[in-house]
């Protein structure tokens, strides 16, 4: 797939608005509620690896549930083990399994993180930070293009929360992310909470970060809660979205417009109604900033 075709695909995705409004992360504690009550949520996002089977083959019960949910909702795949920034080569078996899953549930786009998760075949199951260098940019942008090509659908990279930065980085994260997306022709999944957490942890201005992200590349946003740990903020996904992150989200909506947004909550998961309230708050901010016209397609 050449660069132009990739761009066309990403643009078509934005235009079609296959997923729109404020979705929620689907987690196992809410399966029964979502399948039996069919809450009025416009779309769900799931962690890809949870539905790829133990060895990327049979999906078993988790995949049965996902397919049942898919009958009523669009579902977006969000991965945590792509390991795009690793010194190890890309795992083709993993990518093929991911492609099969994306095809099976017709995920409008697929996302993962700007990070590495392990090297020499190990997986630390964490989103580990990268030095933002020209070498890294070449590696990751070429891989992102390759991944999008293999998947045959738009692919977007998410900015991670980081607690560690490298002295030999040659550019700020926003520049690295924007340039990766431009060179690869892929999208950006902008996690507003992660921007805020990393800004506090490393002492940069989160609004400057947002202003340097190309709006035409942002295909999705994330909102989540963080925790305090001494002098650092930790992206724990176990709290409501904090006030400064809501404020930053408003700025992001002003800059990037009508971009589908997702509420993530992965630990100490509350009743589904709490997630719906968080989604409603995000929707209220969107409507206030975008006005009725832009939100016409939203639930």
């Amino acid at each position: 797939m050449n660069q132009d075709r990739i761009k066309t695909k990403a643009q078509a995705f934005r235009d079609k608005k296959i997923v729109c409004g404020v979705g929620v992360g689907l987690r196992s504690v809410h399966y029964d509620h979502v399948l039996s009550r069919r809450p009025a949520v416009p779309w769900f996002e799931v962690i890809s690896e949870n539905y790829m089977g133990l060895r990327g083959d049979q999906g078993g019960r988790p995949l049965e549930i996902l397919e049942e949910a898919r009958r009523n909702y669009p579902i977006v795949l969000h991965g945590v083990s792509l390991n795009i920034g690793s010194a190890d080569p890309l795992d083709k078996n993993y990518l093929n399994a991911l492609k099969r899953l994306a095809n099976r549930i017709d995920s409008p786009h697929v996302t993962d993180h700007l990070c590495w998760t392990g090297v020499k075949g190990q997986n630390l199951h964490d989103l580990l930070p990268l030095p933002y260098t020209a070498e890294g940019l070449n590696l990751i942008s070429s891989r992102a293009a390759q991944i999008q090509d293999i998947l045959g659908r738009p692919f977007a990279l998410e900015n991670p929360s980081t607690y560690l930065a490298f002295r030999h980085s040659q550019m700020p994260e926003w520049e690295f992310l924007a340039e990766t997306a431009r060179q690869a022709g892929c999208g950006i999944l902008l996690d507003i909470n992660n921007v805020y957490v990393s800004a506090k942890n490393h002492g940069f201005d989160p609004v400057e970060y947002l202003r340097n992200i190309p709006a035409d590349r942002v295909i999705q946003m994330h909102l989540a809660g963080y925790s305090h740990c001494g002098n650092l903020l930790i992206d724990t996904h176990d709290h409501p979205v904090s006030d400064p992150v809501w404020e930053l989200y408003g700025e992001a909506v002003r800059l990037f417009g009508d971009v589908p947004t997702l509420i993530e909550w992965d630990d100490k998961i509350p009743p589904f109604g709490v997630l719906e309230k968080e989604a409603a708050r995000a929707e209220k901010i969107r409507r206030k900033i975008l006005g009725k016209r832009d939100c016409a397609a939203l639930v």
């Binding site: 580990l128 002295r167 030999h168 700020p172």
Partner: peptide
Amino acid sequence: MASEIAPPWSKLQE
């Protein structure tokens, strides 16, 4: 940003 002699990508990660 500081520019130092960067360790190889693989050595840094290992």
